[in-house]
Amino acid sequence: MNETDAINRDATGNSNTKVFLFVFLMLCALTGISFWVANSYLMENRVVGWSAMMLVSVAKALLVILFFMHLWWERAWKYVLTIPALFMGVLLVLLLVPDVGYRYLTYSKDRRENAPKPVVSDTIDVNPANYEIR
């Protein structure tokens, strides 16, 4: 089976090389795109910028998994092994969202006082001219 498979692909070997080179160029270009997004106006709304970068990463991962890992040419068994694993992983992450993702929405007063303090603080705004020492 292994050998017949190899021979089958030998017949289209040249086009495979072209596919791999194309995927390589696409991966480089996509890396450049995520680098560009990180320094562009898209980051003004951080969720938009982050989502764009994550989408680029998903595209890159799909390119690698489909062509370098040959899933594009495999039979239906590929779904059996990848989809449930992916589902479990995504489910685990979603389970964390209420407790971890929204953690700061339910901080107690104590917790808020000891939480990491943002650099830009709106609550404390002091004009140095308005106070004296001691």
Binding site: M88, V90, V93, G101, Y104, K117, P118
Partner: peptide, 18 residues
Amino acid sequence: TALIGTYIVLRFGAPEGS
């Protein structure tokens, strides 16, 4: 996915600047 997903949830849930 567990490792990276936990990081994503921690990062997205951090208030701006923290």
